[in-house]
Design a protein around this nucleic acid. Structure first.
Lengths: 348, 348
DNA sequence: CTGTTAGCGCGTTCAC
DNA sequence: GTGAACGCGCTAACAG
C-alpha cells in the first residue's frame, strides 16, 4: 500500500514482494526487531512481538530465505542424494528424513543419480551450489571427486542403505552382504539344495552388487563344495516385468535350481506372479525369496519370504543424527547399524 | 591457498568456501568477468574464458546460488507440491517434471501435504520463502489463502492431476469424473448389472472424490433407475491391505454386486489378491476394476482392468509449459487435457 | 530489550 | 569485451 521511497543512485529492480523493512515500518520498529521476532520470539517483549506479528499478518510477509541464508551463512536445508525418486523404498527413506528434518526447521532438497556415479558427482556439485547445511547420501561408495567435494564443504554427512568400516562422516544402515548371507543360511536350514541368486544391477547400484557378494560368501560357508549360481543382468529396469524375464532366464540356465534369491522384492514379485501364469507351484516346484519387504510381499499368494530393511527408520535416524550435529551437540554415535530381518512367508 | 586480506571494520564470519572474487584473483580478471563466463560463455574472448574456467577448476569453485538468487532476483527453482512423496504415481510425475526442468537449469523443491488442505497452506507458505520462479501443484482445489498467496507471488503456476474450468493459472491434467463415467459405461457395455464404487478417501483427496462423482453421474446415465452403490472409507491408508479390507466390507454391504470399481489400483490389487486367497473367481464371480494403471495391474493374474493416466507426461508437460513461461515465450495453451485410457485386461 | 551499522556473494548497471 | 560501484534482503556484531 505505502509506496516505499525511491532510492537514489543506481536504479535497481527490487522485488515486488514485501520485505522485512516494510514490516518494520508498519510495526513501527526496526528491521532487526522483526528479524528477532522471527528467530527468537522469547527474546523481546510480548507487546513488541505482537505488534510485529500483526504487521507480518497484515502485510502477508514471507521471509526471503535466500537473503537469510546469505546473511547468516546457514541455508536451513539438507541435501539428499538418492538413486531414483520413483523407487518406493527410497521415497520412504526420504519421507522419514523429511518428516524429522521439517520439525527441526530444515527443508530437504533432493537430487537423484539414476544409479550412476557420474551423475552423482554432477548432482552433488549442483546441490553444493545451494550450500546445504548437511548431506544425506544413499550408498557408501562414491567417486573420489564426491568425497573431496564433501570434505571441503566441511558439513555433516550421513551415508545410508549399506555398511562400511570407513564412512565419509556418519553412517546409518545395514549390511547388504550379511543380509544375503543370512538368506543363504536360511536356504540351507530349510533344506534347499541349489539356491541361485538372480538380480538386475544398474551400473552404479553397489547395494545390489553387495548382495551378490553376500550370496557368494554365504554359499561358501553354507554350501561348501557347491559353486555359486548367479544370474545378474545389467541395465534391466527394476520392475516386476524384469522379474518375469529373469525367471525364465534363470530356469533355462539353472534348471536344477530349487530356490531363487532375487535382489529385490520387485523382481521376486514379478517372478512369483509369472510362476502363477506358467503353472509353476511355489514353493513346491520352485521357491522364491525377495529383498526389501515391499508391501506386495505380504499380499501375494503365497506370501513372499523376504528380508525386511528399515527404509523409513534409516531416514528418521539419519535426520536425528544430522540435527544433533547441526545443533553441535555431541553425536550419539558415528555409525548406526539398524539391521535387517528375514521374514518367513510361504514362498520359501 | 592464498590467504585473503582480512577486511577491516566490523568482523564478519565469511564463508570458508571459495568465492567468485577468489576465482577472479586466480584468473587475473575481475569478479564480474567470472560471472559473465558462468552465465554467458559466448560473451567474452576464448582466452579469458579458458583462464577463468581453469581457475574455477583449480579452486574447485562452486557458485553460491543464494547470492546469485538475491542479486538477480531469480532463484532458478520451481516448487512442486504433491500429496505424498512415497506415492508412486506422484513420484513419477515428479520425475517427469524434474527431468525437463533440470535440462532448463531449474531445480525442483518439493513439499508434501499428506492430502490435507491445511498442510498445503503451510507448505506453500514455506516454499514461498525460497522465492521459487514457478509453482507446480497436484490438484485444482485449494484454500483461498493458497490462491491468494500464489496470486500475490505473481509467478507461473501449473495445476495438475485433475480438470477445472478455472485454473489458478495453467492446467495440465485429465478429468477424474469422466474417467469414472467411462468406467461405468464400460461396465454397462460388458453386461455387468451392479457396479459398485469402492474407495478410500483421505480428507483432502479431491481427486478420489471426483472419481466418486464421476461414478455417480455415470450410473445416472448408463444405469437409469438404479441407485448408485458406493463404499468410501475415510482415513484408510492407500495400501494393498486396505484393498483387502474394503473387499470384505463391500461384499458384506452389497452382496449382489458383480463389479467393484476401486478408486485406485493399489486398492484393486489388494482386493484381487484377497480374492485369490478367499477362492473368489475373478472376474466370473466378481469383477474388479482399478484406477491408475500401476505396474502391478499388468502382472496380476488375471490382469487388472484399469484406467491409465499420464503420470509422467503430466510432469513433463507441466515443466515445458513453465519453462516456456519463464522464458517469456508465448504460452502454447493455458490448459492441456492429456486424457485417460481404459485398459481392458482380464479382471473385468 | 532495541536500534545502528556493515557486509554476506553475487548480478546489474554504467563507463570505458 | 572488461572493470568499478552499488545494492538485492537479511542478520551478526556492537552500542546503548
Amino acid at each position: 500500500m505505502t509506496e516505499p521511497e525511491k532510492r537514489q543512485g543506481r536504479r535497481r529492480f527490487g522485488t515486488n514482494s514485501v520485505t522485512m523493512a516494510d514490516v518494520a515500518q508498519v510495526a513501527g520498529v526496526s528491521a532487526q526487531t522483526v528479524s528477532r521476532v522471527l528467530r527468537d520470539p522469547e527474546g523481546c517483549t510480548p507487546q513488541t512481538r505482537e505488534r510485529v506479528e500483526a504487521a507480518i499478518r497484515s502485510t502477508r510477509y514471507v521471509q526471503n530465505l535466500a537473503a537469510s541464508h546469505l546473511a547468516s551463512n546457514r541455508s536451513m536445508t539438507v541435501a539428499a542424494v538418492i538413486p531414483q525418486i520413483a523407487a518406493s523404498v527410497f521415497a520412504e527413506t526420504l519421507q522419514g528424513l523429511s518428516n524429522v528434518l521439517l520439525q527441526a526447521g530444515y527443508q530437504v532438497i533432493i537430487g537423484h543419480t539414476d544409479y550412476s556415479h557420474e551423475r552423482e558427482e554432477a548432482v552433488v556439485r549442483s546441490l553444493l551450489g545451494r550450500r546445504p547445511d548437511a548431506f544425506f547420501l544413499v550408498g557408501t561408495r562414491h567417486t573420489d571427486a564426491v568425497r573431496e567435494m564433501l570434505a571441503r564443504a566441511a558439513i555433516p554427512v550421513v551415508e545410508s542403505w549399506a555398511w562400511t568400516r570407513k564412512p565419509i562422516d556418519q553412517l546409518v544402515g545395514f549390511s547388504n552382504q550379511e543380509a544375503l548371507a543370512a538368506a543363504v543360511a536360511y536356504a540351507q536350514r530349510s533344506g534347499y539344495r541349489h539356491p541361485t541368486f538372480v538380480g538386475a544391477a544398474r551400473p552404479g547400484d553397489d547395494r545390489a552388487r553387495e548382495r551378490l557378494d553376500g550370496y557368494t560368501t554365504g554359499m561358501a560357508r553354507h554350501y561348501p563344495g557347491q559353486a555359486p549360481r548367479s544370474l545378474v543382468v545389467e541395465n534391466l529396469p527394476y520392475t516386476m516385468g524384469s522379474g518375469s524375464t529373469l525367471l525364465e532366464a534363470a530356469r533355462a540356465r539353472f534348471p536344477d535350481s530349487d530356490l531363487l534369491l532375487f535382489s529385490s522384492d520387485l523382481l521376486a514379485s514379478g517372478a512369483l506372479l509369472a510362476c502363477q501364469r506358467l503353472g509353476i507351484a511355489v514353493p513346491r516346484q520352485l521357491a522364491i525369496m525377495g529383498f526389501g519387504d515391499y508391501e506386495i510381499a505380504r499380499e501375494l499368494n503365497p506370501g513372499l519370504t523376504t528380508i525386511a530393511v528399515p527404509t523409513v527408520r534409516m531416514g528418521e535416524e539419519a535426520a536425528r543424527m544430522l540435527v544433533q550435529r547441526l545443533r553441535s551437540e555431541t553425536p550419539a554415535a558415528r555409525k548406526r547399524d539398524l539391521g535387517f530381518e528375514l521374514i518367513e512367508r510361504g514362498s520359501a
